[in-house]
Design a protein around this nucleic acid. Structure first.
Lengths: 120, 120
DNA sequence: GCTTGACTTCGAGCGCGCTCTAAGCGGCAA
DNA sequence: TTGCCGCTTAGAGCGCGCTCGAAGTCAAGC
């Protein structure tokens, strides 16, 4: 019934090692176990993992993610603070995109320059 | 006449430690010295540093930057390869921006959700 | 019963990109 | 001349985010 660690790994794109690591540091809370002690992930765990990987891929540090995860565990009284964390992070992501876009322009310029020089 | 390491640090945004490190690994080539052996950077060094920091900030690994720096040192016969490196990198940057933009949408959605829940 | 293989825990190890320390030198001011 | 400051080198150390290894358990198949 539960989802094995291999399956969770396949679906989340994280290695089994990383899944255990995430649990150990508190990013995922107490995954259920089958009778022989093996992890049995739920769909809800996978949805949470999916969100976590998005935070990661946008550059949120593990420590901040842990903070967020802890608030989530503490329940509905923490939504305002969670929202603030996400808003602050969103701002960083926007800044990051702006900077990348700017640097992309420089890259275009350099590449054009090489192309022109070669054509000469 | 030459620019001191402190000045180069201030203008590049890199620490003096990092400037020496970059030179040691070959990212910057043989910075000139004043009579007492202290580094004397040129405007051209600073322009190059500026470009390097852009490559870094767009996520190019140090190893790739070293490769690029070496081609540059080898002279004008290597422009085609340098262009290819930049083009490949540009593609990665574009992908990265696309991914970030997508994740930004998820972040917006989550934040809206919290805002709505709180307002209820 | 024995092998195989995937799981478990816990702690050590790794790769990257710096960052810092130790030991020493040169130049200037008091 | 003494003290201080900022530079020099070579090499060690660090923080992050995994990643791996060792040693053990359990269930299934031969």
């Amino acid at each position: 019934m539960g989802i094995t660690i291999q399956e969770a790994s396949r679906r989340s794109g994280l290695s089994a090692h990383t899944l255990r690591y995430y649990e150990r540091i508190g990013l995922i809370h107490e995954v259920e176990r089958d009778p022989s002690g093996h992890r049995a992930y739920t769909e809800s765990d996978l949805a949470w993992l999916d969100f976590l990987t998005r935070l990661r891929s946008t550059g949120m540090p593990i420590a901040d993610m842990c903070r967020y995860a802890e608030l989530r565990r503490r329940g509905p009284g923490t939504t305002a603070e969670r929202r603030r964390i996400l808003e602050a992070h969103r701002e960083r992501v926007r800044t990051r995109i702006a900077r990348l876009t700017e640097d992309l322009g420089i890259l275009d310029y350099k590449i054009d320059f090489y192309a022109t020089t070669e054509a000469r």
